[in-house]
Simulated scan of single mutants.
Amino acid sequence: MTDELNIALVQCNLIWENPQANRENLEKKINSIYSEVDMIVLPEMFTTGFTMTPGKIAKEEGERTVEWMQTMARKKNAALVGSIVFEEGGHYYNRLWFVEPNNEISSYDKRHTFTLAGEDKVYTAGEKKLLVSFRGFAICPLICYDLRFPVWARNTENYDVLIYVANWPEKRIVAWDTLLKARAIENMAYLVGVNRTGTDNLGNNYVGHSVVYDVLGHSLAFSEENTVLYATLNKAHIKAEREKLRFLEDRDQFILKG
């Protein structure tokens, strides 16, 4: 357990529906990380782009990617976080994996499938939030469209870090910027948002805007470039601001029904 969590955000272009090429590209970027970090966060569907034709991706690719994440996590002594197309039991999932360097694995299936793109017709929605305890920090990872639904992200568990991995297009980037900052402030938690860059095969353009906010909504990292961003999260900052402001103590009590 430590008082600081050093993180790296990998913001990059994705090669359409080509898991092997994306793993090779991301491996180069991860190997280029110049400092010791505790957690490396990748975009949504980082092996394929935001595809609505998951049947084109071999089922084995999901397991290959998880094994690759385990290898990279051990190599860098850091957790790897990101979502991929995953097939299980005859269903497709937009599944986020949180892979720790000791090979411990946790997963979260995207709760809010993006109806505008027909994701709800292709992928099975998840039903449970994930909370991971890692190196002294409680972490809640979510996926892209989940960002628009604050009740799902509400900090009823007293987590320290809220993560969103995404393929969020340029035409709606103002919403991404605005809602990420709001989620940090209202939940009094560090906010980590990782988006992609480039253009996908559907003509959507992506301009990054990956970012890290502290619990007051101050930006610690931001970029529109193809790059790796770095930030240090401090447990003392969370404790001090929550004790001083106590906003979470005034939150509404509710039960979320499926």
Rank of each mutant, 00 (worst) to 15 (best):
D3H: 12
E4D: 14
L9P: 08
L9C: 06
L9K: 05
C12R: 01
C12K: 07
N13T: 09
W16F: 03
Q20V: 13
L26W: 01
E27K: 15
K28F: 02
S32V: 04
S32P: 08
I33C: 07
Y34G: 12
S35C: 07
V37F: 03
D38E: 10
L42I: 01
E44A: 13
M45L: 15
T47F: 10
T48D: 05
G49K: 05
T51P: 10
M52A: 05
I57W: 09
I57A: 09
K59V: 13
E61V: 10
E61M: 12
T65C: 11
V66P: 03
A73T: 09
A73E: 11
R74E: 12
K76S: 10
A78M: 04
L80R: 09
L80V: 10
V81L: 04
S83F: 04
I84R: 03
I84T: 11
E87Q: 15
G89H: 06
G89L: 00
H91E: 13
N94S: 12
R95Q: 08
F98L: 03
N102G: 05
D109K: 11
H112E: 07
L116W: 12
L116A: 14
L116N: 12
D120Q: 04
Y123G: 00
G126P: 07
K129E: 14
L130K: 07
L130N: 02
L130I: 02
V132A: 07
V132W: 03
V132T: 06
F134V: 10
F134T: 00
G136D: 06
F137T: 09
A138K: 15
P141N: 00
P141H: 01
P141T: 01
D146I: 10
D146V: 05
L147Q: 07
L147E: 07
R148N: 15
R148W: 00
P150A: 04
W152F: 14
R154N: 01
E157N: 10
E157M: 13
N158R: 15
Y159W: 11
D160Y: 05
V161C: 10
L162A: 12
I163T: 02
I163Q: 02
A166L: 05
P169V: 08
I173S: 11
V174Y: 11
A175Y: 13
T178M: 14
T178W: 10
L179V: 06
L180E: 11
L180Q: 11
R183N: 01
A184D: 04
E186W: 08
N187H: 08
N187F: 04
Y190F: 14
Y190V: 00
V192W: 06
V192S: 00
V192T: 03
V192Q: 01
T197F: 03
G198Y: 02
T199F: 02
L202K: 15
G203L: 13
N204I: 00
N205V: 15
N205G: 08
N205W: 02
N205P: 11
Y206I: 01
G208E: 07
H209K: 12
S210W: 03
Y213D: 09
V215R: 04
L216K: 15
L216Q: 14
G217E: 04
H218V: 06
N226P: 01
T227Y: 09
V228W: 09
K235S: 05
A236F: 03
K239M: 02
K239A: 13
K239L: 13
A240K: 15
K244Q: 14
R246Y: 09
F247S: 11
E249L: 11
D250A: 13
R251D: 08
R251Q: 14
Q253I: 08
I255K: 13
I255G: 07
K257E: 14
K257F: 04
G258Y: 15
